[in-house]
């Protein structure tokens, strides 16, 4: 039985990861620690596991790996504490709001000799895996341009508190796509220009709620990425991840979560997309558990998390200076 703990349920993804840990054979969700004790207790009850109030006590236990799903700016302190306790770590994305923090996280884990993964579940999405193999097959030839979106509904809470999140929709919804493109094409990002907006929610919070990014990858591939909290409350689903690859040999288009049925629900006065298809979170958590067991790296490492943070940091700098920023 591989024993895994979860640190903080601030990020909603913790619920999904906890459910995956419960469902996977040979794994147990041994304990939950949360700096918000009432939230932690509630979650421990929900997932029928122990709540440990003291972080040191939690880390001193026999859990082998931890999933960290706190607010972005708390990742560093928690990862570093877990690394000192020699736990294998899967950290929610973005790895950190700044390159400085991300670098420190990576260095600390390397020095401590623990495995560090960044939670990029899209790498485990079956349609995206298929798209990658189409691209890598060479049948479509060179890639010239890519248009991506990662839209969502406004998540509220700490996500729009810069002290805890480090940024708004662009912080939240850029790293998935950046990681996907690095992974799919094996190329790095060279530069970014970014327009930020805070204008879809009556400026009711201080961060951006949309980012329109123009990036260049190695080999001159031009990329535009639209990151936003633009989906209205009445939208039938949470959002999307889409990619359009313009290649010499044609187009490849991905709408990664477009495996759905439409439900017209009179009871709730709601039109809704209910998802079917494979659950990428399950494969992500399984990959982490395998890494814990075999003492090796996760599919997406700390360095991958760092590379994605480097792009978002440059994007925010571009919006501030009004210029294209080299990465």
């Amino acid at each position: 039985m591989v024993k895994i703990g979860i640190m903080s349920f601030a990020h909603l993804h913790a619920n999904s990861y906890a459910a995956c840990l419960k469902a996977l054979p040979g794994v147990s969700l041994s304990a939950i620690w949360d700096d918000n004790a009432s939230r932690g207790k509630k979650m421990a009850k929900e997932f029928k596991t122990n709540f440990v109030k003291d972080m040191n006590e939690f880390l001193a236990s026999d859990i082998e790996g931890v999933i960290i799903t706190s607010e972005n700016s708390k990742h560093r302190a928690m990862v570093e504490a877990a690394a000192r306790a020699k736990k294998w770590i899967l950290c929610e994305k973005p790895l950190a709001p700044t390159m400085k923090d991300a670098q420190s996280i990576v260095t600390t884990c390397r020095k401590a000799g623990v495995g560090l993964g960044t939670a990029f579940p899209c790498r485990f999405s079956t349609p995206l895996i298929e798209a990658k193999s189409m691209l890598n097959s060479g049948k479509f030839g060179a890639v010239y341009a890519i248009t991506c979106t990662n839209h969502g509904q406004y998540p509220g809470g700490w996500f729009s508190d810069p002290a805890l999140s480090g940024g708004g929709a662009t912080m939240d919804h850029t790293v998935h796509v950046v990681d996907l493109l690095r992974w799919m094409l094996g190329k790095e990002f060279k530069s970014v220009y970014c327009e930020l907006g805070n204008q879809l929610h009556n400026k009711s919070f201080p961060t951006d709620d949309l980012g329109s990014l123009h990036l260049e990858m190695e080999g001159g591939i031009q990329v535009s990425h639209l990151a936003s909290w633009s989906r209205p409350k009445s939208f039938p689903t949470w959002g999307d991840v889409t990619l359009e690859f313009v290649c010499e040999g044609g187009l490849i288009t991905v709408d990664a979560f477009n495996q759905k049925v439409t439900v017209f629900d009179d009871g709730n006065q709601q039109v809704r997309y209910d998802a079917w298809g494979d659950n990428p979170d399950m494969a992500l958590v399984k990959n982490f558990v395998d890494a814990v067991q075999s003492r090796c790296d996760c599919a997406s490492t700390g360095m991958d998390g760092f590379a994605a943070t480097a792009v978002t940091e440059a994007a925010y700098r571009s919006a501030k200076t009004g210029r294209t920023i080299k990465i």
Partner: peptide
């Protein structure tokens, strides 16, 4: 950003962000 390619296949693909004086993007 626009690709304006001529070969092997002639292709163009343009990506633009424009900010208006009103703030609309």
């Amino acid at each position: 950003q626009t690709i304006m390619r001529t070969e092997p296949t002639q292709l163009d693909y343009s990506q633009v962000t424009m900010r208006m004086k009103s703030g609309v993007i």
